[in-house]
Every structure is written in C-alpha cells, then in structure tokens.
Amino acid sequence: MRYLVTGARGFVMSVLVERLLTAEPDAVVTTVDLHAPDHLLTTHLAGHEGRVQHVRADVGDSSAVAEVIAESDPEVIVHGATVTHDAASERLDPGRFIHVNTGGTATVLDAARRAGRVRRVLLVSSGAVYGSSPLGLLTEDAAPAPDEMYGISKLAGELVARRFGRLYGLEVPIARLTKMFGPMERPSSGRAVMSLPYHLAAAALAGRPLRVTERTLRAGGDWLSATRAAGALHLLARGTGRGDGVYNISSGVRTGVPELLARFGVEALPAPAGEGVVDMDPDAESGKNGVYASDRARRELLWNPGDLQEQVTEYLTWARNNPAVFVASR
C-alpha cells in the first residue's frame, strides 16, 4: 500500500507513520510537513529509510500539494496536518487555524480527487468540535458546539470533507481524537501546549513532584496514548470502517488526575491559582473536556483502546530513552 501522511512531524502522525511501516512490510509512506524531519523523527523511523520519503510542503499551497500527490501516487492519504489550540496563538493569529485546519483540508481533498488513484482520505479531527456541549459523555451523534477557533476550524474541515466525499465518491472517514499523550510528543509549530501526561513524564524522569493548581486535583479527563490511537487510524486508513463514518478515538472513560498521578508514580505539589504547571477546571468536564464514547470504533473497527497502565508504562520507557525531549520542562 502507498500512503501519504500530512503533518507527519507531529507526534500522533509520526507514531502512525512508524506503525504503517512496521505493520505493513510492503508499505511505502510519503510524509508531508511544513518542516523537515528532526533527529527525533528520523531516529523513530530508523530501519525504514528505504520505504519512507519526507517532503516539505504547506498543505495550504495547492500547487505544492498537487505536485507531491502526483509524484508519490498514494492510494490512501491520512490528513493529520493541524494547528492545535492555545489561547495566545488564537488571539495573535486566528486566521492560521482556518488556513491550515480548514483550507488545508480542502486543498488536500481537491488534489486527491484530481489525482484519480486515491481511494480513501482519512481526516484526523478532534473532540474539540464538541466544544461547549453540555453533555459529559459524547457520542459521534452529539451536536457539535465548537467554542474556540481550533474547534471551529476542525468542524469546518469535517464539513468540507463530507461534501467532497459526496461530490466525488471519495471515501473520507473522520477520526475525532481525545486528549492524546505518548511517544513523540514535543513542542512544535503546530503544538504549543503539552499534555498533562507529558508534564508527568518529565516529573517522573526528574524524580520530583509536579506543581498543579489545587482544583486540578479534583479534575479528570479522557486520555489515550498515541500508540493506541495509531492502531485505530491504521485500521481506518487501510479500509476498515465506513467510508463516510465518524469515529471517536478515545479511552471512553474518565480518569481522575490523582489516579493519573499515581499511574506515573508522581506526587502532586499543590500550587495557588496561576502558579501551577498544569491547571484544569473540575467544573468544566463536558463537551470537549468530557468523555468521548468509543463504542462505534470498538464495534465497527474491532479496536480496543487497551489498558491505561500499559500505555503509561510504555510512555515512561520511551521517555527514559529520550530524556532530551523533556529538558525544557524541568
């Protein structure tokens, strides 16, 4: 199978690329990103150099995208290029979310349908589309209510994808990711805010407690490792599931912050408001901060998110082998 993966320098997509190459010995992957692969990515993909090609391109550049698709001739595209939310970026440059998350999606889909050979484009979306929904447990049928430019742009990208599917007969499944953590997470141009598990891994490596606001200890969330998410994305990419389906890729359960601390073996150091490394609001556990039901993915993809402790243990092993990733957070 010939794959093209956009946003491949990002942490979830880089884990997916490694999975594609490992699980399919005959797979050939073209990675597309605005930036050249860093040392961490090339190390992560070591041993597969003959079957992976890295291309620098802006997904908003229609000519560049059309050229790379024509030259790589993929059967499947996984569109994961994105700019994730952080308050400072949203206020400074709100248009960037639209350019990348919505415009980039339209550009990739248009190039894919013109190429002719592409049969499936997997759109990697986010539970941010649920936004301010009052629901604490979100199924894929819950009404979207995005409340930030990130979620708005991701929902718009989903709508664009559905319309392309209907117009041109493309298979365009959509995967909505929950709160992600795991190997390859590090600051990038598209990801400025690190997950709570990232900070927990840094604290575990340093053998120190983690400063969190007092209210954070009453909060919780739906966390999933990128390695488990990559398993679901791989299934969707190779043709499992409905070509027009929407799938929550999530743990499907709430894990409280104290439990997560215990799983990482890290103690909490309560901090006043505004002084913690992490601050979560326990009264805001609905919508995008709620739990995303994963029943559809379990049923139709025959996928299982797996055990959280195994995911944490796997992540800590990777972290110990890549301590430089966490230097800036110590």
Rank of each mutant, 00 (worst) to 15 (best):
S189P: 09
W318Q: 10
T317N: 03
T43I: 01
V193Y: 09
N248K: 03
R120Y: 03
G231I: 07
V327E: 15
V266L: 12
S14N: 05
A70W: 06
A324I: 12
G95A: 03
A204G: 04
P134F: 13
T216C: 10
R238Q: 14
A201G: 04
L41A: 06
D283L: 14
T178I: 09
R113C: 00
G103C: 12
A36S: 15
P187N: 14
D295F: 08
T178H: 11
F164A: 05
D61Y: 09
T105E: 14
H44Q: 04
G256T: 15
M280F: 09
A192F: 09
A23H: 05
G221Q: 01
H39F: 14
G165C: 08
G274D: 03
S125N: 08
S72K: 11
A88H: 03
D61R: 02
A203G: 08
L41D: 00
M1L: 10
G207H: 10
A229E: 13
L167T: 01
P209Y: 11
L21K: 00
E259F: 15
A237W: 02
A297N: 00
V68T: 10
F181K: 00
N304E: 12
T22V: 12
M149L: 12
E185I: 01
G95Y: 01
A111W: 01
V266Q: 15
A229Q: 08
A161C: 07
P74G: 06
V266G: 14
A201L: 13
R218N: 15
Y130Q: 11
G245P: 08
M194P: 01
R166D: 03
R56D: 09
S63K: 02
H44T: 08
T216R: 13
V277W: 12
D295P: 06
D110G: 06
L269M: 14
T213Y: 15
E90V: 10
N322P: 03
V100F: 06
L45S: 04
D61G: 09
R298M: 02
F164W: 04
G131D: 12
A81H: 11
R242Q: 14
L40I: 10
S294K: 03
S195D: 02
A219D: 15
G190A: 02
P183V: 01
A201D: 01
R162W: 05
A284N: 13
V121W: 07
A161H: 05
V32H: 15
V15W: 03
P134W: 14
F181T: 01
T82E: 12
I249T: 08
V129K: 10
D26C: 04
G252Y: 01
L92M: 14
L233D: 11
D141H: 13
A57E: 10
A237F: 04
V312P: 05
I77Y: 01
R19P: 04
E24G: 07
E214N: 13
D26H: 08
R176W: 11
G243T: 04
L41Y: 02
L308F: 08
E310S: 05
P258V: 12
A87S: 13
V266N: 15
G231N: 06
P272A: 15
V28F: 02
L235H: 02
N101H: 00
V253E: 13
D295T: 10
R19G: 08
L4H: 00
L138N: 07
L109D: 04
S250P: 08
G151W: 11
V15Y: 03
V118S: 03
L200S: 00
E300D: 04
R119S: 05
D281H: 06
H54D: 07
A87D: 11
Y247K: 04
R208W: 13
R330C: 10
